[in-house]
Simulated assay, not measured.
Amino acid sequence: MKVVLFCGGLGTRIRDYSENVPKPLVPIGHHPILWHVMQYYSHHGHRDFVLCLGYKANAIKGYFRNAQHSMYSDCLISDFGRSVKVIGETPPDWQISLIDTGVWRNIGERLVAVKDHVKNEEYFLANYSDGLTDVPLDEMFHAFRKSGKVGCFLAVRPPFNFHLAEFDEQGAVSRFRTSQQCDIWINGGFFILRNDIFDYIQEGEELVVEPFNRLIKSNQLMAYRYEGFWRAMDNLKDRQILEELVERGEMPWQPAARKLMIAE
Rank of each mutant, 00 (worst) to 15 (best):
R258N: 05
E203A: 05
R258L: 12
P22Q: 02
Q95Y: 09
M233C: 08
L34T: 01
M251W: 06
L53N: 01
G249R: 06
L5W: 00
T12Y: 10
W104P: 06
E89W: 00
S83G: 07
G29S: 10
M251I: 00
M38K: 03
W185D: 13
K217W: 09
M222N: 00
A165M: 14
F141I: 14
H31N: 08
W104L: 15
I216Q: 09
P252L: 08
I60Y: 01
M71E: 14
F160H: 12
L10E: 13
G81F: 01
R13Y: 10
A257C: 04
K115V: 02
H163P: 10
V103Y: 11
Q220D: 14
D234G: 15
F153C: 13
V118Q: 01
H46D: 09
F191K: 04
T101K: 05
I99C: 06
E19C: 10
F191L: 13
D100N: 12
G131D: 08
V135S: 09
E244W: 04
Y224S: 03
C75R: 10
R231W: 11
E250P: 00
S70D: 13
M1H: 08
D79Q: 15
Y40P: 02
F167S: 11
D138W: 10
F198K: 04
P211A: 06
W230L: 06
F191C: 04
R177D: 10
V112A: 01
E247P: 07
G88V: 11
N58S: 13
Y41D: 00
D234H: 15
T101S: 07
Q220S: 12
P255H: 12
G204I: 00
L34F: 11
L154T: 05
F176L: 15
D238W: 01
V84R: 03
V209R: 07
G148Y: 12
S73Y: 07
Q240W: 05
K115W: 00
S129L: 05
G151W: 02
P22R: 00
E250Y: 12
D93H: 14
A113L: 09
Y224T: 00
A172R: 07
N58G: 13
G188M: 09
V135Q: 12
H163W: 14
G45N: 08
F190K: 02
Y224I: 04
A126I: 02
F153Y: 14
G9M: 07
S174T: 15
L34V: 06
K2A: 12
R177G: 02
L137A: 07
A223V: 05
N187C: 10
V156Y: 01
Q181A: 10
E166Y: 14
A57Y: 00
L154M: 13
Y123W: 13
V114E: 00
V173G: 02
L245M: 15
H46L: 13
A256T: 08
P92Y: 07
K259Q: 14
R194M: 06
D196Y: 05
R214E: 05
L215A: 10
R248G: 05
Y55A: 07
R248Q: 15
